[in-house]
Design a protein around this nucleic acid. Structure first.
Lengths: 342, 342
DNA sequence: ACCAGCAGTCGAACCGGTTCGATGAGTGGA
DNA sequence: TCCACTCATCGAACCGGTTCGACTGCTGGT
């Protein structure tokens, strides 16, 4: 069923059908009814490819998300879900693009072949060639995260530096003096992942301010790595009494490591960090953490992108979020006197 | 940059460029080189909408996934990731469609507007109108899960009945006599979710075979609900010594409930179920479970769909998987004598 | 010497929409 | 009564590809 068929059955021209549907020119009430009746009978819907070809807009946005070879984190899932939902409210579809090892192939498909009107990028690196490319090409994109030079970009980000600082201060206020930082995997840190870098900066800075004894670790994005990492922490400094982490996926393993080492949370050891709220509540005891507002961020990213698509010449905008720490039950006062149990 | 521009600069006609690219007719080596050179210079890539319009194929598949209002489970994330990856290897893009409350709107967009060549459906219900619609329309679709009448369908599914039976037998073999079953939320059970129903069937059947005393529960898809559910279980029958669950998202809460009640896993209480392997390893102690091979299922679903797209008249095919139980550390022999601790 | 056959190329039609300019009928004002 | 203007509609062109049929040179067989 195409528009010509509808036109024929309604006894009008194709253009009249088009105008009846779009409302861009006036159509008599009688004709409109007749057309609508035929359309309802045949269940006609205009072909998306033809429409996209004709008016140059696909009504689709691309979501460039991290490669699957890695482990996904719950946070990423929340982003994807909220982006799709928000896009739907604007009548946009979402096309997924895994930005894997040869990110280029899929990336090129999306952009050069004009499959999407705009793109949302996840997992931003401080120096990110994807962002650079898009910027140079003037392609409408919004980042979830921000690069080192984000002035000209559109983005919605988290103030990881401030969040991790807040975590450190929270622990210092509780009397902890020897704290470990559990970062994302070394591979990602080297690749320049924004959260890993800014989080580390915040940790280092706050630790210096408070005169704490600290160690920093990279840890794989999975539970077993978390357990190994925790063993390493207690091996390097058995007097460690708290840790801050950005590594959501390793959280279960860190807890397991503590349990194996006989450290009770929060009595003997405090744990906090930056984690999506819903996932902070899946561990026992629930994690005191700066809750990543993943849903809100996804929605904001779509809002920005739609605004940018509607106003191609608008000045770059962004949202920097810094949610407060949610106090749950994984942190407590440091033991005074005996710091060592190993 | 369009094909006409390339043709002009290469001094040939548009059709020659097209044939040079597709290889569907012979083109002289010299012409081919000239065209390729111009294309490389200009970075030309054919417009996807135009191509889709011309040859009737969008090279895109739709992934109909559950509404985001609910909580996502890790399993769903793994599905999405593996589907996207597998699709990429066939040069297909993936369009996400939230099948929410008014699933119709987004669903219609995908199918009636011909945005996708085929679809993969997640979260299948025993009676599923989406599947019925697609079947009647002859639209190429593959289900992850199967309906009650799946004979004519293409699907890849999990034998939840057998898996849960295996869990029950495992516990019974360890001497457990009073076992609880923690299902997905009541809302989903009523909606007819396949896994919830078949899992429950398997549980009931195996429990009857082994003459066990059992209770079954529905539980919200989040940690707090899991904790509440566990309290209810111990309240209803303090002598319960084990549970089987399908509810991945509640797992953390169930563990927390046990910890609060002073039941040590696995010494006092055994936990098992059907859960994506990677997530079974995030809890402490790691869950003995039938690992849902989410990645494999996503890949198989794409394989089937591509096959169906390539051979429109092929007979329906499917894969029914029944992975073995992975023994980890959350189950152990039942206490003899004293079953009650409350 | 002539014709069949093939490689290489082109123009035109088509996919299914949107949009511009033109046309004709009807209306109101001078 | 005539003109200007609006409303409703139509035909044609266009978006950027693919594909079919036809045409032109060549080559090779008889």
């Amino acid at each position: 069923m195409n528009i010509g068929e509808i036109a024929k059955r309604a006894g009008v021209s194709r253009s009249t059908v088009s105008y009846a549907l779009s409302g861009k020119r006036s159509v008599s009430e009688e004709t409109r009814r007749k057309i609508q009746q035929v359309i309802d009978e045949l269940g006609y819907r205009p072909n998306a490819s033809a429409r996209a070809l004709a008016n140059g807009r696909t009504s689709t946005i691309g979501l460039v998300f991290p490669p699957a070879g890695n482990h996904y984190t719950g946070m990423q899932l929340d982003f994807i879900g909220s982006v799709v939902e928000a896009a739907a409210t604007y009548d946009y579809d979402v096309l997924l693009s895994p930005s894997g090892v040869d990110s280029d192939r899929s990336f090129q498909r999306l952009l050069a072949e004009r499959r999407v009107d705009g793109a949302i990028l996840m997992e931003i690196r401080l120096q990110d060639d994807r962002v650079d490319h898009l910027g140079e090409a003037g392609f409408p994109a919004v980042c979830i995260g921000r690069t080192a030079h984000s002035d000209g970009d559109w983005w919605v980000g988290l103030d990881h530096t401030a969040l991790v600082e807040a975590c450190v201060h929270h622990l210092a206020d509780l009397g902890h003096r020897r704290i470990a930082f559990v970062n994302r995997p070394e591979r990602l840190l080297h690749a320049g992942y924004e959260s890993a870098h800014r989080g580390l900066d915040g940790f280092t800075k706050a630790a210096a301010e408070r005169g704490l004894t600290v160690r920093t670790y990279c840890c794989g994005d999975d539970a077993p790595s978390g357990q190994v990492c925790l063993e390493q922490i207690l091996h390097d400094d058995p007097a460690t009494t708290a840790l801050v982490t950005l590594n959501e996926a390793a959280l279960g393993g860190l807890y397991r490591g503590l349990a194996v080492a006989g450290r009770h949370v929060p009595r003997d050891f405090s744990v906090t960090g930056v984690v999506a709220g819903r996932w902070a509540e899946t561990v026992t005891p629930q994690l005191t953490a700066a809750d990543v507002p993943a849903e809100q961020m996804g929605r904001l990213a779509v809002d920005l992108l739609v605004e940018r698509l509607d106003h191609p010449d608008a000045a770059p905008r962004h949202h920097l979020l810094a949610p407060p720490i949610s106090l749950r039950t994984s942190t407590g006062p440091a033991h005074t006197g005996s710091g060592s149990t190993a």
